[in-house]
Write a protein that binds this DNA or RNA. Structure first.
Lengths: 208, 208
DNA sequence: ACATGTGAACTGCTTCACAGCG
DNA sequence: CGCTGTGAAGCAGTTCACATGT
């Protein structure tokens, strides 16, 4: 299979959301034009994105909403449950643990870790915070697929090494620190300060 | 001035961080090669990125760390303070309000709003939560440049319209909802569920 | 001699435009 | 006839390679 651009995958996620909405409104068929209008893209882009994975539409008619929905879930790997561990039970880690959007799409949070003895043992949304030192051993049982890092920048690389050694194959990093991981591990960085700086740049350079 | 790619701006933010680190370690001069090694990019990329804004280096030598630092701050618009309002004082909004990374770079949080009367009046990190209904009037006083939205998806567009009408010219949106704003307003979307789905895709399609 | 700054080549994503099929 | 699926064209971002300046 050909390599798929990250931008394409992002759009597939968006199409999935729009289709869920169309399904809720009992719309059975949708054209690439209508899907495009909902995101801010073009019908050609929609068709091209989907064409990497097969031919799901009917010429002259469009796409069956339930069928395309099922296909997209399958393509994105959302047709089964993923096990997620969150490392760092500070404000952000705790907020993520409680975020409904995750469980809703089959991301099951199997454990929450923190190295601070003060926090260990407390409960967040029905999940007891476990000591960081237990992560490796408990991973044999939980078999996490994805680790979400919400730790201080200074600890991030060390934690990343630990979760990778524990068998995690994907990392979502909220720590403001560029991580190094083997290229067998998928990595996404979310850096709120960098987003704000992008806005600062836009404010400084766009207008005025 | 030529249009600058978003990817370029992101890298400038990274260079800024690396330079701060070099400065802390009292390194006075740095080559594009050394900067590139720190991010995961190439020296040509570093030089090209900087070349959009001028010639800051000395041939045969490299870049002066303090000088390039000052230039980057200026380019990114970080040489003065921005006023930020946060809308939504739930878990994520509260976590953002307390996040040190913002104030550290000159983003001053001037107000925190919520429409829930239960939350209004409480204090988060020294900031009293104000009722959403007060946003427009208080904006005459606070003059916010940037709004951070941490509200439910269903409220996001309505809130965006309100803050735009109140004079905000940049929005950082954490709500899982694609926003429509006039093209005079800069917009960044942070969607954690979409990042996770990108990892799910990678796990499903990379290996196996 | 060495590292920058930059046109030129290249790579890859997006848009176009139309043939193909229901 | 309408809308998909897709090669081809167009465009934007990255990499190359070297002339230039210190």
């Amino acid at each position: 299979m050909k390599r798929i651009a990250e931008s394409t995958v992002r759009r597939l996620s968006l199409y999935l959301r729009f289709l869920e909405d169309f399904e809720k409104r009992s719309i059975g068929t949708i054209s690439s034009d209508e899907l495009a209008a909902r995101g801010s893209t073009t019908s050609a882009q929609v068709r091209k994105d989907l064409s990497f994975f097969g031919s799901f539409g009917k010429r002259g008619l469009g796409y069956s909403v339930p069928e395309l929905l099922a296909r997209l879930r399958q393509i994105l790997g959302l047709d089964h449950e993923w096990h997620v561990v969150i490392v760092g039970a500070g404000k952000i880690g705790a907020a993520l643990a409680q975020y409904r959007g995750f469980s809703q799409r089959g991301f099951r949070i199997v454990a929450l870790y923190d190295s601070d003895p003060e926090k260990v043992g407390r409960t967040v949304d029905g999940l007891q915070i476990r000591p960081m030192s237990a992560l490796t051993a408990e991973s044999h049982h939980h078999r996490p697929d994805i680790a979400v890092l919400a730790v201080p920048a200074t600890a991030a690389q060390e934690v990343a090494d630990i979760v990778v050694a524990a068998g995690v194959r994907a990392i979502l990093n909220f720590a403001p620190q560029q991580l190094q991981v083997p290229d067998t591990v998928a990595l996404k960085e979310v850096n709120m300060a960098i987003e704000l700086e992008g806005l600062s740049f836009a404010l400084t350079n766009l207008r005025m």
